[in-house]
Design a protein around this nucleic acid. Structure first.
Lengths: 283, 283
DNA sequence: CAGTGGTCTAGACCACACC
DNA sequence: GTGTGGTCTAGACCACTGG
């Protein structure tokens, strides 16, 4: 394949791509996994292979590149690791779908007026013709250390956790584990493994604990085996772990939520109206 | 109430691991890549192997598990793909470092008073004893389709892009490519590949284009080969691609910035003070 | 039953950093 | 040199799904 093209407009970080040394002289490079991956990747980004299209089978690639099966598989593994391609067991390799839904964290966390007990997930999506569902289970636990620290709980204090898995069209969409200090949640609707139409924050607010501020911490990483399982994640699918801490007006933490968002299903949108100016650009 | 709450069938946490069926009977499972990965992963999460520690060499693992070298390598590849482990070429496999720096988009995005042209990246970090540096290059380009769409540019219109790579202690930290409509940036300091102490937004504001709102879109995915190269990313390192669009008071897009944040180096922190206090004023 | 990818073995040669 | 991981070959058997 001569189409080593790349050639970016105007001097830029070109040259990448190869993955292996530059090789100033076009020395008859043996075809290896990198070449196979690069070749197939180019076909995908160029659009020769569109989303959902099937790649050639391993056997066909062995044929085309004249390498051993392992080398072909390693080349494919590169693309799988990049999240570009997925192997569907006895059918073949396919180009992955790039479609993502919008996820707006603030919608979930803003306390709403009593007369608008809207559940963004369940109602808005249903309105849009989707079929959202969710499972909820509730437990009293010793919270993980990072949760305990943010809730200001000591080692022997307990928390209530509401674990939710949300699905769209039957496919896992995100998980959300919300922790509340047991002292706050005790005896409220939070303890019940049912949907809380008005929202858990409303429940707390009615009890005098009004959340007025929230801090989100997003960590980007590969999923744990646990998360891969709960969310049915394919290989090469990273997640965002959103750690939300809600505070009342005195700075006391009322709630910590851990949301796991599969990278292949979401775009996280944060609208910042009124904020004069993005990027004061340093430098 | 067991702190372990999950009665759920598989799906749940718990020492998954097998990767294969339940195996009600402790049938002498052959040791495969999954078992090797699980075993080593457990040692890491339990702390038997701490950050920076070296794992046994491949040869030692072949010995320990009695499998072929390829199987051992596949087991290790699982951990590498999870971002838990990194192979340092002729030295061995090591447990990766979990430290992440805070990244606060809003700090970068708020317009500051003219007399405080503080560069968050260059000054704050320097104050903290770190040594931040950056490279800048400027080009006039046809913006990518998604950028052009947000800037409201037609196919034949051009944009100015300021491409920055920021380093900390010499290691790449993030990239930031900011696009401006050529008509706005023409003849301003934005065209110069120098640091703009007061910030590009200030430059635009001084020209009458005041940015009053910004929208961030975060996409979580595996890096392209290009990004792997620019940011010196190890395998198993996902990135967040932050797409920031800044608008003036008329809703006209002034700027689009694409920031690539390596997942292993950042925690993205978003502080949301002043959430509506329902007691105070609904809606 | 045929064809796909998934797993594993056994062996070989290479590049590279360190002693 | 020695030992590390990186790459590649050649062949084998398995599990699953669809025709």
């Amino acid at each position: 394949m001569p189409s080593r093209g790349s050639n970016r407009l105007s001097g830029q970080s070109n040259d990448q791509g190869e993955g292996t040394p530059v090789a100033a002289a076009p020395k008859r490079r043996r075809v290896g996994k990198v070449e196979i991956a690069t070749d197939l990747r180019n076909q995908i980004v160029r659009g020769d292979l569109g989303e959902g299209d099937q790649l050639p089978t391993e056997a066909a690639l062995i044929d085309r590149y004249g390498t051993s099966r392992n080398t072909v598989r390693e080349g494919l593994a590169i693309l799988v690791g990049e999240g570009l391609v997925v192997a569907k067991r006895p059918h073949g390799y396919f180009v992955r779908d790039g479609h993502r839904m919008e996820y707006r964290p603030q919608s979930d966390l803003t306390v709403r007026p009593d007369d608008v007990p809207k559940d963004v997930f369940l109602t808005e999506l249903a309105d849009a013709g989707r079929t959202p569902t969710q499972t909820i289970d509730v437990a009293i636990v010793r919270p993980p250390a990072d949760v305990a620290a943010r809730l200001g709980l000591s080692d022997d204090e307990h928390a209530v956790v509401r674990r939710r898995v949300r699905f769209l069209e039957g496919a896992p969409y995100m998980t959300n584990d919300s922790y509340f200090p047991l002292t706050l949640a005790q005896g409220t609707a939070i303890m019940s493994p049912e949907d809380i139409a008005r929202g858990a924050n409303r429940v707390l607010a009615d009890a005098g604990h009004v959340q007025v501020r929230a801090v989100d911490e997003f960590t980007i990483r590969m999923p744990t085996p646990d998360e891969q399982h709960r969310l049915a994640l394919g290989p090469g699918t990273p997640v965002a772990r959103q750690f939300t801490t809600g505070y009342d007006r005195h700075g006391k933490a009322l709630r910590v939520a851990i949301t796991i968002l599969p990278g292949d299903r979401h775009t996280i949108v944060i609208d910042r109206p009124g904020l004069p100016d993005p990027e004061a650009e340093p430098s």
